[in-house]
């Protein structure tokens, strides 16, 4: 088994990553490169540093301690030359105010279990549990499977939040210890899927069918929640929604309890700033009811109303 899980965050008290109140473990490393990615720091499978100008006290301790000289002070703040940076973390060590910080924390199994099990009484009260999200948890499937197995032993339900783009055996390893499969379906057309996420979706759809078949025969309670981020111009198209809905109806509706369409939001832009990256969707505001309505109608043409949930911030007009 992988000795350690590389994470970007362990978030306590989440209410959007499965039922009830949960702890969500966000792993680092992803198999897709979605243009709209909300967690850009989760993409790279190794540790990296970023710089938060709001925390900086301008002491330059980071640049002083950088062995490769990859930090420069520019007018807009610290610039990290990532072609030179070896991600050794000396700058984060040197920084007194956590403005320069490591993205990527390695957890061993026992400390991670200990941390998430502190919330056990809240899982029991709220009907919640633990979710692994990302990044792509299936890229660290051995650890995740063992983590889930131990959680279930402790009476905690587990949720896997996956994009589905991973080897079949990784999925097979985790499913036996999973209660909720939160499965992303972003774009139905394979070529467009590749255009926006870097990968086509055949493997994703095959894995989804496999998961559904597994659930039909599973000896423990399991269900699928399909999640579709509504991204203007990419996923938020009636035709796309209708096609995804059609797939759900034809292949997995019996084991799917919810299809959640999450309206786009732009709160992650500050993460791109910290990574000094330009975000494709910078400046795009929340979607309007008028934009959402036809998408909802398209979804409802395929699945029953009680299974559809539209979430996220939506403007009146």
């Amino acid at each position: 088994m992988d000795k350690k899980l590389l994470t970007i965050d362990v978030s306590h008290g989440t209410t959007h990553d499965g039922p009830g109140m949960r702890t969500t473990v966000f792993v680092k490393g992803c198999s897709l490169r979605c243009l709209w990615c909300q967690n850009p720091e989760s993409i790279c499978p190794t540790k990296e540093v970023w710089w938060d100008k709001t925390l900086s006290i301008g002491c330059m301790s980071c640049a002083e301690d950088c062995p490769t000289g990859s930090l420069q002070c520019r007018e807009e703040g610290i610039h990290i030359d990532r072609t030179v940076c070896k991600a050794c973390g000396a700058c984060a060590e040197a920084c007194p105010s956590t403005a320069m910080s490591w993205q990527g924390q390695e957890y061993e199994l026992e400390p991670l279990l200990k941390e998430v099990l502190r919330n056990k009484s809240y899982y029991d009260q709220f009907g919640g549990g633990v979710t692994c999200s990302g990044g792509e948890p299936l890229l660290q499937s051995e650890f995740v499977a063992e983590f889930f197995r131990r959680l279930q032993e402790e009476g905690v339900t587990t949720a896997l939040d996956t994009c589905g783009c991973a080897p079949r055996k990784n999925l097979e390893a985790v499913l036996p210890y999973t209660n909720y499969v939160l499965y992303d379906m972003k774009i139905f057309d394979p070529e467009k899927h590749r255009l926006f996420t870097g990968q086509t979706n055949e493997r994703i759809l095959e894995n989804l069918k496999f998961a559904a078949e597994y659930i039909r025969k599973a000896d423990h309670p399991m269900e699928i929640w399909i999640r579709t981020p509504l991204i203007p111009g990419a996923t938020a198209l009636e035709e796309n929604i209708r096609a995804i809905g059609g797939f759900i109806r034809e292949n997995i509706l019996d084991v799917t309890t919810r299809w959640e369409m999450c309206a786009f939001n732009g709160v992650c832009v500050s993460k791109y700033d910290k990574l000094e990256r330009q975000w494709e969707y910078d400046g795009r505001g929340a979607m309007t009811q008028a934009e959402i309505a036809p998408l909802k109608a398209a979804a409802l043409s395929q699945v029953p109303e009680e299974k559809l949930l539209v979430s996220g911030m939506i403007r009146e007009n």
Binding site: M21, R118, N119, S121, Y122, D124, Q125, F126
Partner: peptide, 11 residues
């Protein structure tokens, strides 16, 4: 409030 408080007390 109920679930949060009961969780807190059980802890």
């Amino acid at each position: 409030i109920r679930d949060f408080s009961a969780g807190f007390f059980k802890n």
